[in-house]
Design a protein around this nucleic acid. Structure first.
Lengths: 202, 202
DNA sequence: ATGACTTGTGGCACACTATGACAGAAAGGT
DNA sequence: ACCTTTCTGTCATAGTGTGCCACAAGTCAT
């Protein structure tokens, strides 16, 4: 990896960290792109070359998770029932989170606090999920050998799986360390699995 | 109802209709608030007094549905299992849709086409749901006699119910008349009910 | 009807997000 | 060193959304 790419990654993280801190200090809405850019000494124009929008700062985590889920789902054996395969994908996201660096944990916890204080950002995050669900539904439909445009169950399977993940992520008892949070998310996932009739997703 | 209120309602609908038509003609993104305001001969400033944002034009339907769901949920007997009560609320939205005027049906079908062509708007709509889910979760938690801030199942019940509604609304085979659409949504809801283990929501 | 009172409207200024275009700086490869 | 590719800052611009104030329109007395 050349100097250029290392520098870019460094800038990306500097922007992210500066933004998260500013959001926590003075709120999301009242922090401007100009301030963020100023804090890392880049021009506002350059900011938009690293993050397509201000919202994107809070969605980077989501984007990472989505990519991981899609990859995991693809790698699961075709014999797995679709919902089971999706649950593996969700657990892959949890493991990834547990296995990441201290810095990333800090960012994640900051992000959580910011989302907590700005419900409209949870909305943005959920909005992002709409696209994710579409992509996952295509994979599930392929597994089930049906047409994604006409099969409702494929969509329902994905929607339930994402619901479980989201509830585990955002819902109750928000504080704690990363392992505590992932632990609780795992509980929610199990709760969802227990709630469904065996064989419903075939 | 005085002249003033009638006039306001008329303006509101004029804005809505003009906007929906413009969105269909030339796309959502490339239609500006100035154009919409021009089409109904009001100032752009006044537009924002009727709709808080451009997005809000596409969310008016969602807002109406949410209000109806909350009211219906409140009116269901406390003895109903929570998910059952929610399903009644969803069905109330469907009946309301079927029972509304021809004009409203036309608006609804236009909106559907617009959402279909602009996936990011589905995202916005889903984002709106985040707030709705929170409010519904509070009602469900109350029914179950638990604390909404610590009980995951209450949130999961709501998330599953809203998933079913959303899948039915946006997913497969988008065309058709209003009764056809509500009919398909009803099917999806039943599918969701069959997928869950009896008594899971107690 | 005439007046006083309340509410809606238009115009203006303004802050902010986001994008296109171009020139110059920095990094990569030879 | 040289040339190419990629990144950066500056400038201009479009569009959304809000506060403010004067004015018009609807409302409600007498």
């Amino acid at each position: 990896m050349g100097l250029r790419e290392r520098k870019k990654e460094k800038t990306r993280l500097a922007i992210l960290d500066a933004a998260l801190d500013l959001f926590l200090e003075q709120g999301y809405e009242s922090t401007t792109v100009e301030q963020i850019a100023g804090a890392v000494e880049i021009s506002p124009r350059t900011f938009f070359r690293y993050f397509t929008s201000k919202d994107h700062l809070v969605l980077w985590f989501h984007d990472h998770g989505e990519q991981l889920m899609v990859e995991t789902l693809r790698s699961r054996p075709q014999g797995d029932p679709p919902f089971t395969a999706l649950m593996h994908a969700v657990r892959a996201v949890l493991s990834d989170m547990e296995g990441s660096t201290e810095d990333e944990h800090r960012r994640f916890l900051k992000l959580r606090r910011i989302l907590d204080e700005n419900p409209q950002l949870i909305g943005q995050s959920v909005a992002r999920s709409a696209g994710t669900e579409r992509r996952l539904a295509e994979l599930v439909a392929e597994r089930r050998g049906v047409d994604v445009d006409t099969d409702q169950l494929s969509h329902l399977i994905v929607a339930f799986a994402m619901s479980a993940m989201r509830v585990g992520f955002e819902c109750p008892r928000r504080d704690g360390s990363v392992p505590e949070i992932t632990g609780r998310m795992a509980e929610t996932i199990e709760l969802a699995e227990r709630s469904l009739r065996p064989g419903w997703d075939l």
